[in-house]
Design a protein around this nucleic acid. Sequence first.
DNA 1: AAGAAAAGTGAATCCGCATTCATTTGGTGA
DNA 2: TCACCAAATGAATGCGGATTCACTTTTCTT
Lengths: 213, 213
Amino acid sequence: MRYKRSPLMEERLADNRQRILVAARKLVATGGFRAAQIAAVAAEAGLSTGSIYRYFPSKSELFVEVLGEAVRHEVEILRGIVKSEGSAADRLRRAVESFARRAFEGPFLAYAFIAEPADEEVDAERIRARREFGNVFKTVLREGIASGEFPQQDADVASACIVGAFTEALVGPIGPTHRGERRREEVIETISLFCLRAVVGAAAAPARGSVRR
Amino acid sequence: MRYKRSPLMEERLADNRQRILVAARKLVATGGFRAAQIAAVAAEAGLSTGSIYRYFPSKSELFVEVLGEAVRHEVEILRGIVKSEGSAADRLRRAVESFARRAFEGPFLAYAFIAEPADEEVDAERIRARREFGNVFKTVLREGIASGEFPQQDADVASACIVGAFTEALVGPIGPTHRGERRREEVIETISLFCLRAVVGAAAAPARGSVRR
DNA sequence: AAGAAAAGTGAATCCGCATTCATTTGGTGA
DNA sequence: TCACCAAATGAATGCGGATTCACTTTTCTT
């Protein structure tokens, strides 16, 4: 009779797969893509290099999945904020702040996903990711424009600008130079205000209990 | 007696060096870093692979110089605009527009320099480049803030945001997807208005004879 | 418990390129 | 013109890693 995987086995396999993904993410988060060779991933996951290929057809596909997972998670959070209650401006600000804050928490991972050189396929995925982020912001933008809260503007371009703006501002502190912890909230606020003003077209009051000066 | 290079020879050597740089730039502009192997550069420059190493110690250094040259040129132009007459807002807008317009003209080169994966050293140079661009914008920002034309804000972060904003907005149209020629001026204007509003904190009128709608 | 098939292993391959180097080519000074 | 040295050449080498595969171990079926 044909071989059949027991549920236990099934689970162990799924577990291995997951462990590989986690190991890969961890390596990227720690030392960037450069540190994430297959051999290293295998060691981290407690498997042999050969085994990796039993779960993923190639290194690229593995990392595309790692990136994809992270992005899906991030987008979910942002979507949640965007769909929540409040003015378009407020939701936009909260989304930017939320993203920035998380980027500060996992700097290397963020850096790798935002800016570190990688191979073609992974890079294509990164571009897709940026587009997805952009789309989330585009949603709020459109709502704000429709409601008259924001002035008329090309939402595609403007949302790309938003993504670019906080991305770049974050890579500075995130990448080589680490600004001190103290400045962190200040940077986050500057970024979100920047985006807000850009879109609103007027000095947006810091609003609720945000950190000042 | 000791060997001495004739002026003619001297010139030919300098010429070769220059031709290598041009060849390298051309290849990057055409097919990105991926297409710019030493062998290809050599062929394009009409030399052998070995000869390249007579002029540059390594591939990385060659491309660092290529990038550096391009950046120096760009920064010069931007500096010129920043130092020209006019309100801070106007100079800022013109600088952004100028940069964006040139990026549209040489899309691949811009893409490669802005976003394409490359090796560590080249990438470090790219980061330096972004910082330089940022510094230019920081200058206007500071002036505008000092004069009260712009509201108080962290010029470091804000200038990074500006660079990031137009960079990202350009890589979209520049990279994989090419929006039609028609949208070009529109995109440029959206970008510069975005940056302007972000910094000024108020809807800035399109001013002079800029393209509308 | 034996045989069959899957899963796991890691040393050996393979590959793409940068880099080198033994030769050849061609300026340079006497 | 000769002897010599710099410059140019491009085939051969070296290298970092991904990928493979012959072999071992584990799991499943009867």
